[in-house]
Each structure stands twice: as structure tokens, then as C-alpha cells.
């Protein structure tokens, strides 16, 4: 089974986001980088499928060339090779991003049975790139998957809707977008890290189409100074809290 997985390097945020003075980017000078949890699960799912069925996992990542570090981390858990699409600091809109990813996937020598992506990126959160890639590749797509089994070329996918789970089936080849909770991603082993150093990461250049959604600036939403009421501590706070529950009507 030949699997393509799309991953994106994003800053690892702490408890607050700090913007650059011009408001055009997050100040990442004090931040580390990683992947969205959705995408860590995507890579883990692909590696498990190849362990069970044979084949190989190819990673596709678009962004800054420094993202090679995050790509090597995923090669260390078992992906076989990677294609890094260097954006030269330009952030494409979702249409341009999907076009570039679909182009990269379809021009590989390998024909992929499955393309796995996260349901949405941690930073942009457009919820559309997987669907657009599927349309470009002429493949069916199942999104927001939290349970995945593949048997006889058919993928059975589960996704949560409220308190129930919907079950979808799709015949491969297909695009599947997944969510955190699909599996528990493994940690890289030391031999895995050694092997990852020798795996191939092809760097490609890309020119994007004119964006249709143009960012003017970023802002951090006002955190209403709620001026939290302190209820104190201990027995006195417990009594005060019960009064609050009565006041807002959750306790009668």
C-alpha cells in the first residue's frame, strides 16, 4: 500500500500568542515548532497500515525549509521519504496550497492508494485543503475520521457527530482527513532517529497562483477583562460556589 501523508510545521504555542510589531505574523523567536496533533495521528496511521500491509509512506510538507527538522521527526517514527515544498516565506491561501500539494502528489513516480491529511491545520484552520486536494486528484474524500480500518481495498471510517459515530466506507484510492484521537502516536526510537538521517527529503520550489484571500493583518482577540470574582479557598469557597451555582440556575 502506497500512502501519502501531508503534514505542516506550526509553532508550539504556550498560554498566549505574541504577534510581530507589524501584526503580520506570530513572533516565533521564542517558540519551538511541531505538527498539529491531527497530523501526528495521520503519520502514525500511515505507518501502522504499511507495517500491516507492506508498501511505503511518503510525507509531503509545504512551508519553510527549516521544516526539515519536523519532517525528520516523522521519518524517525517510520515514514520512508519526504517531499518538502519550499514556500519561500509566502503563506498560500487554501486554494493555492491545495493546488501545490495535489501537483506534488500527482507528479511523483509512485501512484498512491491513500492520501492522509489532518482535518484542519492548527494555525490556518481552513478545514478545506483535504477536500480540495481530493477534487484536484479526482478522488473521493472522507473527513474528520477518528476510526479507520482498511480491508480488501475498502476503507471503513468512523467520525464523531455529537454523541454518535457515523460510519463511512470508501473504495481506495481515496483521500482521508483524520483527527486527534485516531491513535496514540509513538515516540521515535534511537535506531529510528539514526535511520531517519539517511532517508531522502526532496526539496521542491513552488510558485503560487494569485491569492483570492489576502491577509491584511492579525490581531489577538480582546480577552474581556472578566475581573474574575475570587471565592477564596476551602470550606468558605465551597459554600460560595454552591451559591453561585444556585444563582446561575444550574442547581435548584
Amino acid at each position: 500500500m502506497e500512502i501519502a501523508v501531508c503534514i505542516k510545521r506550526v509553532p508550539l504555542l504556550g498560554s498566549a500568542i505574541v504577534l510581530t510589531p507589524d501584526g503580520m505574523a506570530i513572533d516565533t523567536s521564542k517558540l519551538g515548532f511541531g505538527l498539529s496533533p491531527h497530523e501526528e495521528c495521520a503519520v502514525e496511521a500511515a505507518v501502522q497500515l504499511v507495517e500491516a500491509n507492506g508498501g511505503s509512506v511518503t510525507l509531503f510538507s509545504m512551508g519553510h525549509v527549516d521544516g526539515e527538522e519536523q519532517i525528520r521527526d516523522q521519518l524517525a517514527i517510520g515514514a520512508d521519504r519526504a517531499v518538502l515544498i519550499d514556500t519561500n516565506g509566502v503563506e498560500p491561501d487554501p486554494q493555492a496550497a491545495a493546488s501545490a500539494l495535489a501537483e506534488a502528489i500527482s507528479t511523483e513516480d509512485t501512484t498512491f492508494d491513500l492520501v492522509i491529511m489532518g482535518s484542519e491545520s492548527a494555525d490556518y484552520g481552513g478545514s478545506q485543503t483535504g477536500i480540495r486536494v481530493a477534487h484536484k486528484l479526482g478522488l473521493p474524500v472522507v473527513t474528520s475520521v477518528k476510526g479507520l480500518k482498511i480491508e480488501g481495498g475498502v476503507a471503513t471510517c468512523e467520525r464523531a457527530v455529537g454523541s454518535i459515530r457515523e460510519v463511512y466506507t470508501v473504495t481506495l484510492p481515496a483521500v482521508i482527513t483524520v483527527r486527534d484521537g485516531l491513535n496514540i502516536p509513538r515516540y521515535a526510537s534511537v535506531p529510528g532517529r539514526m535511520k531517519a538521517r539517511k532517508k531522502s527529503v526532496d526539496i521542491k520550489q513552488v510558485t503560487f497562483d494569485e491569492p483570492r484571500i489576502t491577509t491584511k493583518k492579525f490581531t489577538i482577540p480582546d480577552r474581556e477583562a472578566k475581573g474574575a470574582t475570587s471565592l477564596g479557598s476551602g470550606d468558605e469557597a465551597a459554600a460560595a460556589l454552591v451559591d453561585v451555582l444556585k444563582q446561575i440556575g444550574v442547581l435548584t
Binding site: 500568542i17 504577534l19 489576502t214 489577538i220
Partner: peptide
Amino acid sequence: RARWAGNMLEEAVVVA
């Protein structure tokens, strides 16, 4: 629009 699930906002122009 909300980025980072609403922890950051993006002001943008959409042409369509």
C-alpha cells in the same frame, strides 16, 4: 476569521 481556533484573528479581503 478565526485562526488557532479563535486564539488569533485574521483580517482579510476575499475576492469572489
